[in-house]
């Protein structure tokens, strides 16, 4: 009898362990600083997390198929720079932003196509794309920042609804919901899971594996670029190094969110939680005044600890 009880307790842990982690760090943060739970701070966290968050949605799509996209961070910077470059040279704001996003989609398409056409590992292909995107973003201005951009650019990035709620946060939440629905309730989504779960079985069940495997890189490219454009809008400055460690943060968030690196299992809601968790940890560090370089070390440790806990809780360690 105790056995069945224990099982269900473990099931609860398994299912909600991310929520429990979030709760734990929230409580910890509240104890460390009473300011943490203030409305202002919570929406601050939402805003700061949005850029990585939007990027991580695309990353989730790619990882669900069993791939990985190391180019997202620099892809974002490239798109941000392109957008600013176009606008400062006279293009209206909206088309400039859209072209930035389209550029990300095209580069994603290139990565995905190369991977599928030449059967190259996604890891190395997107690493190469990362370098290309970095080069491009620096080329626009020889590495200099673009200033003097029109105020209108900052609308999306800086606007707060009802004085508090950041528009970028709302965009992130809406994109997460749309993606979650796509993944769960459309043939497109189920096919992505099937490809990640067993590519061969998916292919023999009639799924166009190549098409979907390329498509996820297009999605990832577009969303990374969108995050970059939003960042440029928020800063209202074109800065080729605006996003730092974008891919690292995105991958960590996706994995902490419970998506399997082998593909076929996980989702964007978990990723949302993963991004928030990472941001809360950063926030705690800032609140208690941990020096930035120390933060890197602690973050690394916490990521690994969270993953070990994840395995431990899900009992994955015992089997093989």
């Amino acid at each position: 009898m105790t056995k069945t009880n224990k099982m269900s307790f473990q099931d609860i842990l398994k299912k909600y362990n991310l929520l429990l982690l979030l709760l734990f760090f929230t409580v910890l943060a509240t104890i460390l600083s009473p300011n943490f739970l203030s409305v202002r701070n919570i929406f601050n966290i939402l805003r700061s997390a949005s850029f990585t968050g939007i990027m991580s949605i695309g990353m989730t799509f790619v990882i669900l198929t069993g791939g990985i996209d190391l180019s997202v961070g620099y892809m974002g910077n490239m798109a941000g720079m392109l957008c600013c470059f176009l606008i400062i040279n006279g293009m209206p704001i909206l088309p400039g932003m859209i072209l930035g996003i389209v550029a990300g989609g095209i580069l994603g398409f290139v990565s995905g196509s190369i991977i599928q056409l030449f059967k190259l590992p996604p890891y190395i292909t997107t690493l190469a794309m990362q370098m290309v995107a970095q080069g491009v973003s620096l080329l626009f201005t020889n590495g200099n920042v673009i200033t003097g951009l029109p105020e209108g650019l900052s609308f999306i990035g800086k606007t707060n609804l009802f004085n508090y709620v950041p528009l970028v946060g709302i965009i992130w939440i809406v994109l997460t919901i749309i993606s979650a629905l796509l993944l769960k309730y459309t043939p497109f989504g189920r096919r992505i899971y099937a490809i990640g779960g067993n590519q061969e079985a998916a292919y023999l069940s009639g799924i166009n594996v190549k098409k979907y495997s390329i498509l996820v890189f297009v999605i990832s490219g577009c969303l990374a670029a969108f995050a970059g454009v939003l960042m440029a809008s928020y800063l209202t400055v074109g800065q080729p190094t605006a996003i730092v460690q974008g891919e690292t943060n995105a991958i960590a968030s996706v994995v902490i969110g419970g998506t399997s690196m082998r593909g076929g299992f996980g989702g964007v809601v978990g990723t949302f939680g993963g991004v928030i968790l990472m941001q809360i940890i950063t926030n705690i560090f800032n609140l208690v005044g941990v020096p930035p370089f120390m933060q890197y070390i602690f973050k690394g440790v916490i990521i690994v600890a969270a993953l070990i806990l994840n395995k431990f809780v899900s009992g994955e360690n015992k089997q093989n």
Partner: peptide, 15 residues
């Protein structure tokens, strides 16, 4: 080649 091992029965059957 036949099944997606980590997915439930219903998803495999409807793939």
């Amino acid at each position: 080649q036949g099944i997606v091992g980590i997915h439930p029965v219903w998803e495999n059957a409807t793939l």
